[in-house]
């Protein structure tokens, strides 16, 4: 049987000198970057980064003094979509100039990092080699820190605004992860960002159709510094609107119990 190559991979047909590698630095400072990620940063002729704290920026600059931040693209009142577009344009402009470029993002650049995707797509469409290196995501940290394993629980995840906007259908008997609960419907960035209680009430009401008010949910934030613990706060679902929820906070909703089993599939386990 012929194996079909993914479209993205098929489009890697570099015809020009500049190149782009997008990497994720992981969540915890320095310690979750893979050897491959570190090598990409060190070898690049130009490095761009969007990270969450100054220490991470110092770490990248130590690996490559050519590193420059992208954070200035994010300004108050400016649509985030435009900020991300500006970031990707800045990255691809360096690729066009013939440089071997590395773009470093917080967490796993392959998970919900729009400028990373935009930069890769633009660079490839212009005939440059562009690839993404997997990193450690907040979700990876969540599973480890909460000691939950999706096998036997199932596992669904949505960006929280998208979850409400598209009225996503999901199975409450499988675990549910909602990203960016503190950024519900936020088109831009502003100082002192936290979830707006009135929007958190809308989210809570949507979830209450499937879970009881007392269903225990977890507000989670992975540790960004290796000397810190992750922030894990368990609350009843009904209390969600009263909580101060930060942009980096993830909502983990444990599954409701289920007893449904397909008898035919169950029998597979006892067949020779």
């Amino acid at each position: 049987m012929r194996v079909r190559r993914p479209r993205a991979a098929a489009s890697i047909a570099p015809s020009r000198r500049g190149s782009l590698t997008v990497v994720g630095a992981g969540i915890t400072l320095a310690q979750q970057a893979t050897i491959e990620t570190i090598a990409c940063i060190e070898r690049a002729e130009k490095v761009f980064h969007l990270l969450t704290n100054p220490a991470a920026e110092v770490w990248v600059r130590r690996l490559n003094p050519q590193a420059v931040p992208l954070g200035d693209c994010l300004t108050e009142g400016k649509p985030r979509s435009r900020s991300y577009s500006d970031m990707s344009e800045r990255i691809v402009a360096a690729v066009r100039s013939g440089l071997q470029v590395c773009a470093v993002f917080y967490g796993n650049a392959a998970v919900l990092v729009q400028p990373a995707y935009e930069a890769i797509t633009r660079a490839r469409s212009e005939g440059f080699s562009a690839r993404m290196v997997a990193g450690v995501s907040a979700e990876d940290c969540l599973f480890a820190d909460l000691v939950v394993n999706p096998q036997g629980l199932g596992w669904q995840c949505f960006e929280a605004t998208d979850f409400l906007l598209r009225r996503r259908r999901f199975d409450p008997t499988a675990a549910l992860i909602l990203w960016q609960v503190g950024l519900l419907g936020e088109a831009s960035v502003r100082p002192e960002m936290a979830g707006r209680p009135e929007r958190l009430r809308v989210l809570t009401a949507a979830l209450r159709r499937h879970y009881s008010a007392r269903h225990r949910v977890v507000l989670y934030e992975a540790a960004q510094l290796p000397i810190c613990e992750p922030i894990i706060k368990m609350i009843p679902l009904a209390r969600l609107p009263q909580e101060t929820i930060f942009p980096a906070t993830t909502l983990y909703i444990p599954p409701k119990p289920t007893v449904i089993e397909d008898a035919k599939i169950r029998r597979w386990f006892v067949q020779d």
Binding site: L50, L51, T52, N53, P69, L70, G71, D72, L74, T75, E76, R80, S81, Y84, F105, Y106, G107, V111, L112, V113, Q114, P115, E159, T161, D162, L165, W179, Q180, G182, L183, E186, A187, V189, R190, P191, E192, M193, A194, T244, F246, P247, A248
Partner: peptide
């Protein structure tokens, strides 16, 4: 609370995308 505009989260809201 988060003050650094670039800090806290780099994940994108995917409205319309």
């Amino acid at each position: 609370n988060v003050q650094n505009l670039s800090g806290g989260n780099v994940q994108n809201v995917s409205i319309g995308n």
